[in-house]
């Protein structure tokens, strides 16, 4: 080791790191390097085990060879995810508002919501398929169920996160409950709402795929594609679908981030995360 005090190097390095990270190339470089390493290792393994893993070019060629099919399936899964999450998210938000305003509603509904949450969705999906048929309906429902509970809890916590002293100021002005809800509770809940969205959207993709697994025979979707390809041991198709599922998850997460930055600059800045 060197003679310099142990703190000195530690103090200089983060600063250099920060400066490096501040440049645009610096911010993407680690990600790209990591991706390249993973792809390289993948390629090596795949070349030696052709029956286990398709090579990286094979996966991309699979997508390039069937653009229409993959576009249709990606579209279907994306639609199930987005619609299911959006409807369930809206419902969860409205229910959270009702719960935060009326304790009776919370006492009545919370146990049911918890029960629904601890029931594995994988177990519900086949039953829903039998009840709702092999169409898109069970997929929306499963996606919705997956999203509903985490969103409900986060909204509820968010609506209750108003600074108690702010509430006292509002009370000293005789602000109505509607005014407190609209001007204090809902704005205060937004940061947690977005945190919930970041957790729930990837979960929603899982929900959509699980539902597609149990309705695979009849309709489109990347999950259906995977099940069908599995029967014919078409590895490139399976991995192409997995890649596109990951892309859906990443796209939804990035969209949430962008919306959050635009809407909640005040919150990020207030927490020292920097604006924009």
């Amino acid at each position: 080791m060197s003679d310099s005090p142990p703190g000195a190097g530690a103090a200089v390095e983060p600063m250099a790191l920060r400066a490096w990270r501040a440049s645009r190339a610096g911010s993407w470089l680690p990600t790209l390097v990591a991706l390249a390493v993973v792809a390289g290792v993948w390629q090596l393994v795949a070349l030696h085990n052709p029956s286990v893993l398709p090579t990286v070019p094979q996966v991309f060629r699979e997508i390039a060879d069937h653009p229409g099919l993959f576009a249709r399936d990606t579209g279907a899964t994306l639609r199930e995810t987005a619609v299911g999450a959006l409807v369930a998210g809206d419902g969860a938000f409205l229910l959270a508002v009702a719960m935060s305003e009326l304790p009776l509603v919370e006492r009545a509904i919370m146990p049911l919501a918890v029960a629904l949450n601890v029931t594995p969705v994988v177990a519900i999906a086949p039953a829903l398929t039998l009840i709702l048929g092999f169409g898109a309906a069970p997929r929306y429902v499963v996606t919705g169920i997956v999203v509903f509970f985490p969103f409900l809890i986060n909204c509820l916590v968010g609506l209750r996160s108003v600074d108690p002293e702010v509430l006292e100021v509002a009370r000293s002005l005789n602000a109505s409950r509607a005014e407190v809800l609209w001007r204090l509770r809902i704005p205060s809940s937004l940061p947690l709402l977005f945190a919930a969205a970041r957790i729930c959207l990837p979960l929603a993709v899982v929900g959509a795929v699980v539902a597609e697994f149990s309705t695979s025979g009849s309709s489109s979707g990347l999950g259906s594609q995977i099940v069908i390809a599995e029967q014919y041991a078409e590895l490139p198709t399976i991995f192409a679908s997995i890649l596109l599922l990951a892309a859906i998850g990443i796209a939804l997460t990035l969209a949430t981030f962008a919306l959050e930055r635009w809407l909640l600059g005040w919150h990020r800045a207030a927490r020292g995360l920097g604006v924009r």
């Binding site: 600074d163 702010v166 100021v169 204090l184 704005p187 005040w266 919150h267």
Partner: peptide, 12 residues
């Protein structure tokens, strides 16, 4: 008019 111990401003 009530002024609490902390400023209790609305951050947004």
């Amino acid at each position: 008019g009530y002024v609490p111990q902390r400023p209790a401003l609305l951050p947004w």
